[in-house]
Simulated assay, not measured.
Amino acid sequence: MEDLSFIIGLIGNVISVLVFLSPASTFWRIVKNGSTEEFDSLPYICTLLGSSLWTYYGVVKPGEILVATVNGFGVLVEAIYVALFIFYANKKMKKKTGILVGILNVGFPAAAILGTRIALEGEAQIDSIGFVCAGLNIIMYGSPLAAMGTVVKTKSVEYMPFFLSFFLFLNGGIWAFYAFLVSDLFLGVSIH
């Protein structure tokens, strides 16, 4: 069973990498046009938050190196996306995005990591960060709703990338199966 879970985890890593890279064409467009246009930064900020905390979870939980490595890659990619977004956004959007990054990508992860490191040990530490990650992932999967608002407003699916939706669907399925194989409730609840 351990070999099967490792293989499924590797497949999950490949699909997760595709999820992280699927907005690359959007950011190529932003760089090429020199503008963030009608794109919203919230999905990228939320993904960076989730990836940061899942990296921490994968590091503190024994045997979850696959979760840590792929989310570490996600932190790098999402940080690049957020930096590009801030660089090319208009003044009002830069301010909004900067505030959100400060709160959600610096303040919240720091508080969660420090809080669990200082106050808890062993399984309690792992369980508490897993609980936070699972809850945030459930919320994070709602962040595409911000893009849906733009889709409705513009009457165009241009701002809801197909490949992102497709790879998120595959990602949820493969990580749910992995969670079942390794009996990790937190990965399963969040459909990482």
Rank of each mutant, 00 (worst) to 15 (best):
V59S: 00
G34W: 10
L120A: 06
W175I: 02
Y57H: 05
A119E: 04
G122C: 03
N33A: 14
D3P: 12
I8T: 12
K61S: 10
G34Q: 05
K153M: 04
L168A: 15
F39L: 11
S5R: 07
Y88L: 05
P23C: 09
L18H: 02
S41E: 06
N71E: 02
M1P: 10
T97V: 10
F85V: 14
M148N: 09
S190G: 15
A147L: 15
V67C: 09
I103L: 13
P109S: 10
N171Q: 14
L114P: 00
R29M: 10
T69W: 08
A110Y: 04
L181W: 01
V70G: 07
T154Q: 13
Y178P: 00
L66D: 10
G102H: 00
L120G: 05
V19H: 03
G12P: 00
H192R: 11
E78R: 00
F180V: 12
R29N: 14
A147E: 08
G63W: 04
A119W: 10
W28T: 14
V182E: 01
V70I: 14
A111Y: 06
I45M: 02
Y141V: 00
M93Q: 11
I126A: 05
I15C: 01
I118M: 08
R117V: 10
A146M: 13
P23D: 09
F177R: 13
T36A: 03
S165Q: 07
I7N: 04
F108V: 15
I129W: 01
N137K: 01
S16C: 05
S35E: 13
Y56W: 04
G173V: 07
K95A: 14
R117S: 13
